[in-house]
Write a protein that binds this DNA or RNA. Structure first.
Length: 270
DNA sequence: CGAAAAACCTGGCAGC
DNA sequence: TGCTGCCAGGTTTTTC
């Protein structure tokens, strides 16, 4: 479900818990992408949340005992904030992080998400091989061009590979390529520096705009405060197969790349 | 080794 | 009303 803008939106909604005392954690179902460790509850109990940050599509809680919770929402995960005196349970609620008056509840029907505990974030297996943050200066045309030139795969798969750049998933990959006028099946190593410039700029712009409006709600993404994202209304190609291209009025195409739906305009993108 | 395919899950929806 | 098959915003594991 969530790509970088949705994770960032979710993070911003729970930022108010920074500095708060995490009184207790309840794990209702340990079965996620990986099993939640048995020591999770005792490790986080009575710790202050010193910082709340995002790295790639992971949300990281830094606790006062120097442990860090690494949370990934997978395809269908979401957080919601509930009042402690409103005690209802929804199917697929996995974990509750209970604070003074409210709690953060992690729900994940498909269980592709995960929760880990670690002491050293940078050495954790899920974090250590991640590429640059797309909104940072490390994600720039020069570096990206160099990385592309060593790759044999198509640019859409390359863009979604979190080793090359993080945070871009299936929606924003199609959208970025449209904005940059690059065909999704073009080989990464065939992009020239100018194309890389356009793609880097497009990626940044799309992600920034999506964050600004709270991400993309196709059907079931809601931020932790319950609000949907409005970027759906700015999508140029994703989910618009058969409809006219917003630029040239030609028909938007759909194909499958690496088992993922891919949308593009044959006329605008080469 | 890198790239592609399969695997991990549940739920919703179209079509019969 | 079922039932079947397909699709879904991600990433790791397996296979080639």
């Amino acid at each position: 479900m969530p790509e970088l803008p949705e994770v960032e939106t979710t993070l911003r909604a729970i930022k108010k818990f920074k500095g708060s005392l995490l009184k207790e954690a309840k794990v209702h179902n340990r079965n996620l992408r990986w099993k939640v460790v048995d020591s999770f509850e005792t490790s986080v109990k009575d710790q202050v949340v010193e910082s709340l940050e995002r790295r790639a599509k992971y949300i990281i809680f830094k606790l006062s005992n120097d442990k860090k919770i690494i949370l990934h929402l997978g395809m269908s995960g979401s957080l919601r904030i509930a009042k402690n005196n409103e005690n209802f349970f929804i199917k697929h609620d996995h974990v509750e992080l209970i604070f003074d008056e409210e709690r953060i509840i992690y729900n994940d029907p498909r269980r592709f998400g995960s929760m880990h505990l670690t002491s050293d974030i940078d050495k954790h297996k899920l974090i250590k091989n991640l590429g640059p943050e797309p909104l940072s200066k490390n994600f720039n045309a020069k570096n990206f061009f160099s990385a592309c030139s060593h790759s044999k795969t198509n640019i859409k798969s390359f863009l979604m590979n979190q080793k090359n750049v993080v945070g871009i998933g299936n929606i924003y990959a199609s959208e970025s390529l449209f904005l940059a006028k690059i065909h999704p099946l073009k080989n990464a190593n065939e992009l020239d520096l100018d194309a890389c410039k356009r793609l880097v700029a497009a990626g940044k712009k799309i992600l920034e705009q999506a964050i600004e409006v709270g991400g993309t709600t196709l059907k079931d993404f809601y931020s932790a405060d319950g609000s949907p994202g409005y970027f759906k209304f700015k999508l140029n190609v994703y989910g618009r197969e058969g409809e006219p291209c917003n630029k040239c009025k030609d028909t938007v195409c759909k194909t499958t790349i690496n088992q993922r739906a891919t949308f593009f305009c044959e006329t605008c993108q080469s």
